[in-house]
């Protein structure tokens, strides 16, 4: 008699732990059931992201770069698995995803030098500006592994923590990638990945007063959250084709300007 296979049940990533939705709901997909996250899952994820943020942004940029690079290593190690999961063209997509992680890993300690300035004010003051992460970023992901990474990597490279709502149709990929994150060196809470229906969870993310910015896939999505997201003036970033990686990072940075007199 053939051995009975053990099918995997998929979980989400919240606060560094792989968990099911607190709602106990799932969505049936070909390949298995995935968690259908709820308002409270959004709440928990934002809470974890907020808690993780001070520590994450305080790490050295070099360390953040290493951690993003470690994600690339972990993904590369499971590239066959992801290629299969993604179906046709999956191999190329995984390769691109790994390369994207490597590319951003290198940015972690460089974008500051591209975005920072020393400002020649007409007074005896030293004046400089530098980027600082916005804080907790909420994001909706596009399809596939690449779509997921584009939603979260620029944010965390720049010192933000992130709550990503996976693309509805790519929930299994997202759940698998959650395991990659969970087994890498990313501190708990820095990346949170929720699966289910974006249309159901995005409004809660948009409403949440402790979310500083939203990365959205398109203009209609921006229009849909505008009313609620404005309540605490979330920064709204809409994906645009051809945008450079540095600009992706910048759009999730604040600019702080400092003045100090120059004297004895």
């Amino acid at each position: 008699m053939p051995r009975l296979a053990i099918p995997k049940t998929y979980k989400m990533l919240i606060g560094g732990a792989l968990v099911r939705s607190e709602s106990g709901r799932a969505i049936e997909m070909s390949g298995g059931n995935v968690c259908r996250s709820s308002r409270k899952d959004v709440r928990d994820a934002v809470k974890s992201a907020r808690a993780a943020w001070p520590g994450w942004q305080a790490r050295t940029a070099y360390n953040r770069g290493q951690i993003v690079y470690r994600l690339a290593e972990m993904l590369e190690a499971r590239s066959g698995e992801f290629a299969e999961l993604l179906g046709e063209g999956g191999g190329a997509e995984v390769a691109a995803s790994v390369d994207l992680l490597v590319h951003y890993a290198g940015w972690a300690d460089k974008y500051q030098q591209c975005l920072g300035t020393v400002n020649p004010v007409a007074m005896p003051y030293f004046n400089f500006s530098f980027p600082e992460p916005m804080g907790v970023v909420g994001a909706t992901a596009n399809r596939g592994l690449n779509g997921l990474l584009e939603a979260l990597v620029p944010a965390i490279t720049g010192g933000n923590t992130v709550v990503v709502l996976a693309d509805d149709g790519s929930a299994i990929v997202a759940s698998e990638f959650s395991e990659v994150v969970a087994t890498s060196d990313v501190p708990g809470g820095v990346v949170n990945i929720l699966t289910g229906l974006q249309s159901e969870t995005l409004p809660h993310l948009a409403k949440h007063m402790d979310v500083n910015a939203l990365v959205l896939t398109d203009e209609p999505q921006r229009q849909s959250v505008l009313e609620e997201a404005t309540e605490n003036l979330k920064r709204l970033v809409v994906s645009a084709p051809g945008r450079s990686s540095l600009e992706q990072i910048r759009l999730l940075q604040e600019t702080k300007t400092v003045w100090h007199p120059v004297g004895v």
């Binding site: 005896p124 003051y125 007199p261 120059v262 004297g263 004895v264």
Partner: peptide, 8 residues
Amino acid sequence: PVDQINVE
């Protein structure tokens, strides 16, 4: 302390 720029 005294700050030069401010006092000037």
